[in-house]
Write a protein that binds this DNA or RNA. Sequence first.
DNA 1: TCAAATATATGAGATATCTCCTATTATTAT
DNA 2: ATAATAATAGGAGATATCTCATATATTTGA
Lengths: 221, 221
Amino acid sequence: MNLLKGLEKEYYIEKYTIQSLFSFDISPFVQVFQFEKGNFIIQEGSAPEYLFYMVEGKAKLYVSHKNGKVSLINFLTPPIFMGEIELLNEEKYSKSIQTSSKCICLGIAIEKCKEKLLADAHFLKYLCIFLSNKSTAHSTKYTKHQAYPLENKLAEFILLSSHEDIYREKHTEISEYFGVSYRHLLHTFAQLSEAGMIEKIKMSYKILDREKLQALADEIK
Amino acid sequence: MNLLKGLEKEYYIEKYTIQSLFSFDISPFVQVFQFEKGNFIIQEGSAPEYLFYMVEGKAKLYVSHKNGKVSLINFLTPPIFMGEIELLNEEKYSKSIQTSSKCICLGIAIEKCKEKLLADAHFLKYLCIFLSNKSTAHSTKYTKHQAYPLENKLAEFILLSSHEDIYREKHTEISEYFGVSYRHLLHTFAQLSEAGMIEKIKMSYKILDREKLQALADEIK
DNA sequence: TCAAATATATGAGATATCTCCTATTATTAT
DNA sequence: ATAATAATAGGAGATATCTCATATATTTGA
């Protein structure tokens, strides 16, 4: 993890017009964090120090269970707040966030400006809209996931997460994301392969028939 | 639906200290609605007129599908905001809310005071906290529902929704709530009956063994 | 570099849940 | 009161998904 300074810092603050979220001068409280792939932005159980706003990169949200196992809950993409619930509720972090690529996050020191944030209608309005969209998105995802078999959801996911027709994600992680067993995920990959939509190449899958995959994905909603 | 006036109106406004949510005088904008059982508080597709805050009663949140079918999404209990997403995003209602008992709701005329609301840090902070709790609750529910079979979830639900050891809900509605087929819901009721935990009496079920039901429910999380 | 840990892979049988079908019983509207 | 509608009820067979077991390949850490 790197704290950017000087021109680099200014570059991101201006590019993403961070000031426009606030009605007071936020510059004394903003840090620009650069996280390398695999870094933890937030660790479960630790006390919140910053309200983060991710502007570049990709990250994953995890929760860990009593038995020590860890589940992938969601993929996070910018622009997104992280740690806003803890800002509002004075709790320790209940989830972890780990980057899956290099990430740029603006971090606002909570201790220094919690009062200012919670009294700034402009910021709060923005945060409300963010939370409300998050809630809507969550609802939609929940409905989808409840109503369709893995085959359809996986087709959609392969299309979304592949790069240049190559899908390369960890099965262990994806089975957790979908809340299905590892075994069943493999079954479903085998189905898609048999149907000629994808092909296994070494440790990854190549998309062979984008239309068929899309048709499967389109059965959802 | 009834608009309460005079002393009745004052009674509810004071009992639930509605003024404490705002930093400006809300009284000119508040109406107190009394809905009878079965009334719609919000109808999908209509334009939002009020931000509602339910303080007494019970209601159900529905969404309707392209094919005309309607699904129960959630049970709503006070204190709860309704229509807050539409206040924030200028959309028409995307869901319906129908009372399942007499309900008292405070209604704030959106047209008259949207600007004031969205500029009131005190109110916005409260709304943020509400939205953030909703999001957390939603997450928890989603995780549960994904991870456990209906038998456990139904046991929990029977305990929560029964009155004086009698469970009486419409199977059609509950199967939608859990996102399972009607047939499977009946199977599961039959299982619980065979195991001696409940007993069908006319159109309802009587709880026979609260501990066993509780044990099933406790397997969740 | 090698052992340990993690991830991939697949078979076999069990269970949860679905779809379709067909009656019967309540509820609602004319 | 009666016909129409909606809800309850359960059989039978199909499908989606799970658990457990076992083997191999890949990645990681000392």
